[in-house]
């Protein structure tokens, strides 16, 4: 009896740490909503035995709020480039040392030393895209329009009353700044005044401000011009082939979304397995094919020819110099942005 008890105790003592080391086969994945094909999660589970529980967020601000609250423990998150330095500084991310991962070799060289995480200590690239200008070429008889923000802010008569502008202050004010040659995140009152004047002149020519149903509004022909993301444009183009996308020459804001692991992640080992798995070319391409955004992995051979033919997804090399990384504005710039927006729509 006593021996049994000792054996049991011993077994319990040895079993406990072993149990703690062997992570539960679960992964809490927190990504932008509709930014990951659910079918791929089933494939991941089949190959690794890890069950992924997917939750969605709508903006970097929401992600930040959840992370800073400390009350919600996710394993893999998808922050955009510009919020990452702040997250690292606040100690919100865990080091994952991406270059040590097996599939790191598949990463395109252009993505290897990003400004926001120079040695990929904390992040691995997911998808990237731009915020540019989409228009329906049928509205101008199939003609090309100028690759400039001018077409949005001082539209030609064919587009007047048929334009949708994004309903987010940051996107609209950034585009206006690029058009006017004003630095991103300006804190100058004079600049703010010029931006407001431009936007006030533009407002009567707009049909609406809207950040929702972007694909639907273009595909159904409800609007003929949209200040919008390239991926949404591509999805709309797949339904209405007269839609074109332009990368404005004054500067086209770019966003690079990345995988990262929160400092309080309950299953960090599973997170690393997932991130490595996502860098495999066929898996990266499966995401791009479903979501219509380009990835950072050498996977072009697996890319759907439908997307490969579109400028919106497969950006022509000569536009690369136009890309402008988005910055995380400081409190003063954010307040100025707020004041412009409130005046515009007050």
């Amino acid at each position: 009896m006593k021996r049994t008890l000792t054996a049991l105790t011993l077994a319990a003592m040895t079993a406990l740490p072993a149990f703690a080391q062997d992570e539960e086969k679960t992964l809490f994945f927190y990504n932008w909503t509709d930014y990951y094909p659910v079918e791929l999660l089933a494939k991941f589970e089949a190959e690794t035995g890890i069950k992924v529980i997917l939750d969605g967020f709508d903006s970097n601000d929401t992600l930040l709020a959840k992370l800073q609250s400390g009350g919600a423990a996710y394993d893999v998150i998808v922050p955009s480039d510009y919020v990452i330095p702040g997250m690292i500084k606040d100690g919100l991310l865990m080091k994952i040392d991406t270059p040590s991962m097996e599939n790191y070799v598949h990463m395109k060289d252009a993505f290897k030393n990003p400004d926001f995480d120079p040695t990929h200590e904390y992040t691995a690239p997911y998808l990237w895209g731009v915020t540019g200008l989409a228009y329906d070429s049928a509205a101008v008889g199939g003609a090309e329009i100028e690759h400039s923000w001018k077409e949005l802010f001082e539209p030609r008569p064919e587009f007047e009353g048929k334009i949708a502008e994004l309903d987010t202050a940051s996107d609209v004010i950034l585009a206006a700044s690029l058009y006017l040659g004003i630095p991103q995140c300006t804190e100058s009152n004079d600049d703010a005044k010029r931006i407001l004047e431009l936007l006030e002149a533009q407002a009567p020519k707009l049909k609406m401000y809207s950040s929702d149903s972007t694909v639907d509004r273009m595909a159904s022909g409800e609007v003929a011009m949209y200040h919008v993301w390239n991926g949404a444009t591509a999805r709309a183009t797949a339904q209405r082939d007269t839609i074109r996308f332009i990368y404005p020459k004054e500067g086209t804001p770019m966003f690079r979304d990345n995988f990262a692991v929160p400092a309080n992640a309950p299953h960090p080992e599973n997170a690393k397995i997932f991130i490595n798995w996502m860098m495999a070319p066929e898996n990266a391409a499966a995401v791009s094919n479903a979501i219509a955004y380009a990835n950072a992995i050498k996977s072009d051979e697996f890319l759907d020819p439908k997307w490969r033919a579109m400028d919106a997804i497969n950006m022509p090399e000569e536009y690369a110099p136009r890309l402008v990384p988005t910055m995380d504005c400081g409190p003063a710039a954010r307040e100025l942005r707020d004041r412009i927006w409130t005046r515009l729509k007050g």
Binding site: D167, A169, D212, D338, W341, K345, G346
Partner: peptide, 23 residues
């Protein structure tokens, strides 16, 4: 959604402060 977003409502500006404006 139905108004076309051309004007702000009280709900919008409160929401903004807790979102993008981070104030």
């Amino acid at each position: 959604l139905l108004g076309g977003g051309k004007t702000l409502m009280l709900g919008n500006i409160i929401q903004m402060q807790f979102g993008a404006s981070r104030n």
